[in-house]
Write a protein that binds this DNA or RNA. Structure first.
Lengths: 127, 127
DNA sequence: CCTACTGTATCAGAACAATAATACACTTGG
DNA sequence: CCAAGTGTATTATTGTTCTGATACAGTAGG
């Protein structure tokens, strides 16, 4: 899951880490209650300073994605279950339309987006 | 073309600027020989320091996208179709990741997005 | 209980990002 | 030609990112 951290990228490390976790949550890879690696553990895995992982976790906490429990660990929080299926689908359509209009502005076509989405979701269940 | 530079984004300004131009070239919006805005001009438009624009242009020069001519200006260089394709795919991946992050905040999962994207593309893409 | 694990909090320093103000050097058009 | 516009370069200053080291404080399992 953290195979795309790149120290040479202009995007800050803490942002790359937070980004991967956000996407994993949206993809359903991480669900409520999931115990994330400890600060020191993830820092060691990524060969990064613990403070950098803390910064990523804190950002995710501000955004409501995770909960940091002192002494216990960091856990994925439940996502607004009040959103029922119909509403979710409407929300999804809006998000997709926003992305499509932005893509059109940039000249990126729908098939490229489709390929990229499948890649992010680790698609095996869809053709 | 440069209407969405965000000073608060964790992505450096010079990288946002370079990214815009890269995608525009890959999309064919900017073609070989196109005269880009001058350093001072673009800096004024974006309300950014000229040195920041220079940094973006220099990065694009290293990557072969543009040529800086002392006293004359900055011009788009010819890019192979393969390379353009690669850049479009990279741009698509970024857009998708942004969408996934936003989706996670709203509680929309990846499958909903895939369904919604299929629906949007289905109504437009068979020709 | 108590040890090992967790997150929390400092501090100092290096490297990078961005700004501001100036000055220099090259190219082009009138 | 030469003035206006171009990229190039320098210096100084501020803030962010990332590291390293160190210490403190809460939690849970044996």
């Amino acid at each position: 899951m953290f195979d795309r951290i790149d120290p040479r990228s202009p995007t800050p490390l803490y942002e790359q880490i937070a980004g991967r976790i956000r996407v994993a949550v949206a993809a359903g890879e991480l669900t409520e209650g999931h115990h994330l690696p400890s600060v020191r553990q993830l820092a060691a895995t990524l060969r990064v300073n613990p403070a950098t992982v803390v910064q990523a976790y804190r950002e995710l906490e501000r955004e409501g994605f995770v909960e940091l429990k002192h002494g216990a660990g960091t856990f994925v929080r439940g996502i607004s279950e009040e959103r029922k299926k119909g509403e979710r689908i409407r929300g999804a359509a809006e998000l997709v339309q926003e992305m499509l209009s932005e893509a059109a502005r940039l000249g990126v076509d729908g098939q490229d987006l489709r390929t990229a989405l499948d890649r992010e979701l680790g698609s095996v269940s869809h053709e």
